[in-house]
Amino acid sequence: MIRLLNVSMMPPGVGQPVLRNLTLTVPKGEFRWLLGPSGAGKSSLLRLLTLETRPSAGQMDLLGVSVSQASRSTLRNLRRRIGFVPQDYRLIGEWTVFDNVALPLRLRGASERDTRREAFAVLEWLDVVHLADKRPGTLSGGEQQRAAIARALIGRPELLLADEPTNALEDAQARRLLSTFQELVDMGTTVIVATHNEALVREAPAKSIDLRDGSLADPAPQDEPALHRSGTL
């Protein structure tokens, strides 16, 4: 579960907060679109949720851990339970796709046999298994994005965050990714996807976190029970 209570975020050197008094709750095993125009604070919220920064003010609980007071080792363990698909992929250029994808499992201390099995399974599912030995720099944008998705999905994270994960994907691949998100939600994973793609949102309607100028555009619906919709999610 994610719970933010009056959370503000003011990066160093920036005169005004990029997130202001944000209060929201996302229960375990739910999906949320993260919407809003450029500069609304989507990336800042994702940075908070991926623990790349801590809130300047307010209380943030993530997967049962109070982030504001958490120790360094607690944050490290918490990060291992989170999967993230960054918009810029963030793959390590000197490593192969396989090593990039296998990293989260290796950090958790999984055996090399299990790591190989899981990594090849997820690479195969994303149609990039033939790229396992390639360096990210030699791949197209779509292939790099799928490698980044594979790294986020491996080991079934409890919280999955994605920043424009379908940007470089073809329509069929995007639909397939959405169905994967649905499967993860069904297994109890909390999924938050930031997107500008209105068509995608229309295709898979679900509850959303709508940001405007660092605040929720409409705070009330966040705590309401899920609406029955006709979409996939």
Binding site: L51, R76, R79, I92
Partner: peptide, 16 residues
């Protein structure tokens, strides 16, 4: 720096 930050934010320990 970028690679170090990637592994750090994926949950690598400082000693690792």
């Amino acid at each position: 720096r970028k690679a170090v930050e990637i592994v750090h934010f994926l949950g690598a320990g400082d000693l690792t």
